[in-house]
Design a protein around this nucleic acid. Structure first.
Length: 288
DNA sequence: CCTCATTCCTGCGGGC
DNA sequence: TGCCCGCAGGAATGAG
């Protein structure tokens, strides 16, 4: 499940392996992988052939390869997407969706994606910031991220704090895993209402979000299975550091209470029943 | 402008 | 042995 640390790990690998190289040919093996590229697969391949790749960029869970002539190749890994560097002669992966060769005949770039939630698209004139990403908020690792603006914005919302953390237009890069980890560190239940949290509490929570993301980046991300890997096909090992996510029934690292799992937004939330008590009024929705 | 539910997709594992 | 179902879940989309 690639979130910011996993995408950043991929970005670093891509930057090392494809920046400065010129794309030769592009082969689209599954149309769904380029569904966001409205002109279609033939145009996608044609417009990328011969383009020089610049320094690889990232915002939240999106990454993009700036191209000469100010366009950009935008990518999102979705649930199971991988961007892999492979020797040209390596056999095709089962879920290989798009393949890029380079004019130096070196290793090729492959987009592999089992569940096809991810995708690639060419953004016209999007080298600095692709138009497809303008609605995505800065991520907390970005030097331009404003902590003050985030605190005010979140407190003006009327929703659960976990929903807010997952809202990419409010803060980007946080997914289910790191939301649960940050909430555990902040000793907050995800169902707490955003408009009832004090500024210091929100600020502290943001600090934990940033810490957990940075620590995970330092360890090459989290991986529970082979679905998430870096460009060399290796898994990160931050999962050894997880305190809440996926640990149902295991003792809380602070108080020893068994970690609980609750349904939330058609997925799972993990938390400590003692450190993170459920709010007394789960969803008191008073008309304004 | 919000807020929220729905939808996309496939492999895996549990239950019967 | 094999089938069915639920689960994993990021983000676009549209309704209200």
């Amino acid at each position: 499940m690639p979130e910011l640390p996993e995408v950043e790990t991929v970005r670093r690998g891509l930057d090392k392996w494809v920046s400065g190289r010129r794309i030769a040919t592009v082969e689209v093996l599954h149309p769904r992988a380029i569904r966001r590229h409205l002109p279609g697969a033939v145009h996608f391949a044609d417009v990328l052939a011969g383009r020089l790749v610049g320094a690889v960029q990232r915002r939240g869970k999106y990454l993009w390869l700036p191209l000469d002539d100010e366009d950009a190749l935008v990518g999102h890994l979705g649930m199971s997407g991988q961007l892999l560097m492979q020797p040209v002669e390596a056999p095709a992966e089962i879920h290989l969706r798009v393949r890029f060769s380079f004019d130096d005949d070196g290793p090729e770039l492959r987009f592999v994606d089992q569940r096809t939630f991810g995708g690639l698209a060419v953004s016209s004139g999007g080298a600095v910031l692709p138009a497809e990403l303008t609605h995505i908020a800065l991520d907390p690792v970005d030097p331009s991220f404003s902590d003050d603006a985030f605190v005010e914005h979140l407190r003006r919302r009327r929703t659960d704090v976990k929903r807010a953390l997952l809202d990419q237009t409010l803060i980007s890069g946080v997914g289910n895993i790191y939301a649960d980890e940050a909430l555990w560190r902040a000793k907050l239940h995800g169902a707490r209402q955003t408009d009832q949290l004090s500024r210091p509490v929100v600020r502290r929570l943001l600090g934990h979000v940033r810490d957990v993301l940075n620590e995970a980046i330092g360890q090459g991300g989290t991986s529970f299975d082979a679905l998430y890997v870096n460009v060399n096909g290796e898994s990160g090992y931050f999962d050894r550091s997880l305190n809440a996510y996926g640990r149902e029934g295991e003792p809380c690292g602070r108080c020893g209470s068994p970690i609980r799992r609750e349904a939330f937004m058609n997925r799972s939330s993990y938390s400590c029943p003692r450190c993170q008590p459920r709010p007394r009024i789960p969803a008191a929705r008073t008309p304004r």
